[in-house]
Every structure is written in C-alpha cells, then in structure tokens.
Design a protein around this nucleic acid. Structure first.
Lengths: 224, 224
DNA sequence: ATGCGGCGTTAAGAAGCCATCAAGATCATT
DNA sequence: AATGATCTTGATGGCTTCTTAACGCCGCAT
C-alpha cells in the first residue's frame, strides 16, 4: 500500500485529505508543523510527501531542503494561488510538483499517481543472483546453497539499499540515512558491524569479500 | 546541452518559448501539430517535451500515449485554465507536469528544471569514454581493459573535477579549491602527487600522458 | 654554460578508517 | 517476569590513505 505523509497546519484540509486518501487505499499519516513533519518523515518513511508551504514554524523551502538532504521521496507542494516566486523557489529546492489552493481532489489524486509512478520507474528485476546467493527483493528472501538465509530487519534493509544500487557506489551517509534515518549520518560504526554480519551470512570467505565491497573512505558497493 | 521539443499550434507561444528557452541555453526544436510532433520526438530525441493539449489534428492525451509507448522522456503539458478533467486525463496518460495558460515564464522554467532533474539523477552524461578507459561518474566506477580500477577518495574527486570539465583547462587554484578546500590554493605539490597517481592507474604510458595533460604554469586538462 | 622555477617521482611517517569481537541495552514474546 | 533475538556501543589491532619532504629532470632566461 502506498504511504502518504501530509504536512499542513489547517485542520479542515488535513481532515479532508485524510478521508479522501484513506478511501482510495492510501495509508495516511499527518503532521501539523515543519518540525514534527520532518520527524514524521524520518519515522514513517512515506512513499510521497504532500506539503503545505504556509506552516507556522518553518519556511516551506527549508522543509523541502531538510527532506532532500537525505532522500528523494517525491514532494507535492500545496500553496495559495498566485505566488509565482514561491512556486519557483519550492521547485528549485527540490519539490516535484506544485498544486494551487483551492484545488480539486481529482487533480491532486492525479498528481499523486503521477508522482508515485515516476518514483518507481520500473519494478525491474526484483530478483538478483550472484554466484553465491540469490536476493528476491519482492518476497524479501535470500537463498544460499538452496537454503533460506535468515536476516534481521536491519540487515535486510541494508542489503536492500545496496542491491537496489547494484554496481553503484553507495556512500556511508546515504546508507545510514536510508537504513537508520537522517539523524545517524555520522554513526559509521553501525555500518561496519552490519556489513560484517551480512558478509558472514552471505560471502564464501567473509574476510575476502567478493560481493559486498568496501570502498575505503567512501562507502560500500554490491557487485553481483 | 539540454534539448527541448515544443509542440504547439499557436505561433506566438511557440516563438516566445523558443526565444526564452534558447536564451537560457536550451536547444529548442518545434512542431505545430501532433503528427509532426511525434515524428520530431523520434527524430530529435529531446530531453524534455513541452506539449500543448489544444492541437488541431490529435487529442492531446493520444500524443502523450504515443510518446509514452516507447520512451519515458519527461512531458510538461500546457493547457487552458480550468479544465480539470483534462488535467487528470493528461497526467494519467503519462504526463509529468501540467502548466495552466496563461503561465509565467519563470514558473515554466522552474518546472522544466525540475523535470530535467528528476529525469537524470546526474545532470550530465555520467559516462565518459577514452581509448584507454571509461569513467562512470554516477556509479563511481572506472574501467580499464575490462577490469575495475580502484581509486582513493581524493583521486576520485580530482578525476571528477577534470572529467566534468572535459576538454577545458582547469587551473591549479580551482582544482585545489574544489578537491582540498579553499584554504589549500597554494599547495601545488598535492596536485603533482595525485595527478601522478591517476596517470599511473589510467594512462598507458604514465610518463607520456595522453589523457591527463599538463598545461605548464596553468593547470591540467582532461582530453578524451 | 649556468642558475632558476615548475614539474614528476618516490618514500616514509602520521592520521584516519575499517574489521572484528564482545559486552551491555533494548525489544518482542511467552 | 524471564527468555532469546536484535540492536547499540566501546575497544583493539591492522590497513589504507593522506601529508610532507627530498631529489632529479626539463625548459627557459640570463
């Protein structure tokens, strides 16, 4: 189910969105100001963010930047009519789309569908195979030598980020932000511990990794 | 340079867009109806499509579907104010964004930037190839003779700056400032050491460089 | 010819980063 | 309340990378 976070300080709008989106099978969480919105973003990991620019505590573009600092989750911005410079600023700060109030629910829903569709370009190969093990992203199963490998939730999240970026170098900051949350970008220790766990469970020779590679000073890379 | 195709049957709008976009370093091609627009799409392979829904020969959503049949190039739709059902149909047909006429040029430009940014995570061509090696900026991979070349973080940063300025001379001050920071603009020694490292890893004959060239007294240049 | 400045090369110590282990803290479940 | 699994945290040793300095070469101007 698609998860949506709505950040808006106007209770009627919040309620209307929640009712309409829930009725259409979205899973909705809400926040009423920028600070708790950013916290909810980190906690709930929604698939889309709907953000009202007129928040009481923070400037809207700062919220966008706060989100963009660690994730590329689509952001749809809501704002009053006619403030073109605000539109430009929001889009340049990293928003994906812009809806002017008052808006029709159908338009918002269409933009929501478009944003979700763009964000998941192709549910391409959900199964990745190496010479040693197989990762099924959709079913959340790892197989090695015919048997299932048991991974803890954190181990799985870490492996998933690496596999979704197969061949690409993933920086430590990015891994920490995506697995532990944006507040953990300096806890490089966690990475060492959990990469070691994964290697012990997946690599033929954990001390000479062939698939989960270290790039000293930069990050890690999954190479099938 | 980013290439834009504009499909619109109103000559004044076409002209205004062409002038404004060209002035901002976009490469603009145009078409005045749906059929020739689809042909231009296939011929020019633009990076973004700006499409007016009110075309004389075809329904706008059919043009969108015709494009979406074979490419995921971002589509920004232009249309008259107030026709919400049309908006919804266009977005569901696969459009990425929607601008209502009359629109401000700044807003359109912002949406254009947002569309291009979404479409290409790395703004430029992420892969550069020479006769000897290839550099993939996005994945952070350098391949030479079929094998990956391991680079240290500093080596990467240096190579990245040079490759992002392919063909251009990059001064020593600029390199030092971008790789080591603005306080290191006199430490020309670092450059010699690290350029030598890169040459040893990348050049066929490190003592007679063909790709990482020295410009005595000025700086360095990457020539593919 | 000779001195000078910029460049290439090399090597060694210093600093920072990584792998590994293990023990305490936390959480879910019974 | 107890148990087992999972997560966090700290410490250690080993390794990579960065920094720094020394030396030789080449081109250029005197």
């Amino acid at each position: 189910m698609t998860r949506v976070l709505v950040i808006d300080d106007e209770a009627p709008i919040l309620r209307a969105l929640k009712i309409n989106l829930t009725a259409r099978q979205y899973e909705v969480s809400t926040a009423a100001d920028g600070a708790s919105g950013l916290a909810a973003m980190a906690r709930d990991r929604p698939d889309v963010l709907i953000l009202d620019l007129g928040l009481p505590d923070m400037d809207g573009t700062d919220v966008i930047r706060g989100v963009r600092g660690w994730t590329s989750t689509p952001i749809i911005v809501l704002s009053a009519w006619g403030q073109e410079s605000q539109k430009v600023a929001a889009l340049d700060a990293g928003a994906d789309d812009y809806v002017t109030k008052p808006f029709g629910m159908n338009e918002l829903l269409a933009r929501l569908r478009a944003a979700v569709r763009r964000a998941s370009p192709a549910p391409d190969e959900p199964v990745v195979t190496t010479g040693e093990f197989t990762v099924d992203l959709a079913r959340k199963v790892v197989t090695r030598a015919g048997a299932d490998v048991r991974l803890t939730p954190t181990e799985w999240q870490l492996l998933e980020v690496l596999v979704r970026n197969t061949g690409r170098l993933v920086t430590q900051r990015q891994l920490l932000a995506e697995v532990w949350g944006p507040g953990y970008q300096t806890e490089a220790n966690y990475l060492r511990v959990y990469v070691a766990n994964l290697r012990r469970k997946l690599e033929p020779d954990p001390s000479a990794p062939r698939y989960l590679l270290t790039e000293p000073g930069m990050g890690y890379r999954f190479r099938p």
